[in-house]
Amino acid sequence: MKEELFVSGRNIPNIDPYLNIWHWQIPLYLFLGGLAAGILFFAALFTIMGKEKEMPAAVKKAPIIAPIALILGLIALFLDLKHKLFFWQLYTTIRLESPMSWGAWVLMAITPLSMLWVASYMKELVPGWKWKNNLLESFEGFVIKYRLWMAWMIIVLSVILGIYTGILLSAFNARPLWNTSILGPLFLVSGMSTGAATILIMSKSKEERRTMSWIDLLLIIVELFFITHLIMGMKAGSQVQIDAVSLFLGGQFTVSFWVFVILLGLVFPAILEILERIGYHIPVVIPVALILLGGLMFRFIMVEAGQLTRYLY
């Protein structure tokens, strides 16, 4: 029998009895960041492949979501800060060891790039659009001229952004549930899958929809594979990791994880996409909404559950 109780003035809000310093802002940001990363990745990828004509939604339309998601995500991040007026300190230094520093700088680069990307397609998206300023008009010409360069920058930055949303969590060895290197790739794939789903619903071309749903299906399978890896790795890990993963295997997050993330967020939309492929007509909004909701739930559950896990001593 072993018992441990706190006897002194250790009663700190948000730390005792459970650490809960990160609330809704962080998982929401992780979702929006992943979504933006996914959308921008495909926009850049198809531009580099020279498929702007075949994939109009991926290259031109869906990227409108990216800067909106990034700005909303940045607002959420800002709301999370407790010492808000000092936020600019993030940009006085580059700390290679800190994922959050990487994230701050990547966001600093990719947010304006995503805006430029959208701006460069404004005339094609909105017929009759004019910048009403000579300088802006010539700047647009400049941006359009170097679009391919921009695509290369965006493809690199979007992968860093997508992976970083996972590494942000996995770098904390004090939280055993997060402390696994698969989390970076897992969040990247999940972000890409939400991005692909967004492109899917914004697309009007049958050919493009076919390609995107194929990509999305592939990403879902990879994601399920990574989640299996995550659970297996934890099960075979140290005691703290076994305890951590038990939150999903009988613990308090079992139902929300298996029902909302695995079944409704991944397996069910995958089945729907397969049914669509073999000829059934499924309204595209159903799998897309499920994928987006599943991605959002996944991040909320990971952040919440991770904060419950700790070292035993």
Partner: peptide, 15 residues
Amino acid sequence: KCIGCGACIQACPYE
């Protein structure tokens, strides 16, 4: 210099 992001609070195994 602290922005209150909470990363260090998450990172500390001793809370």
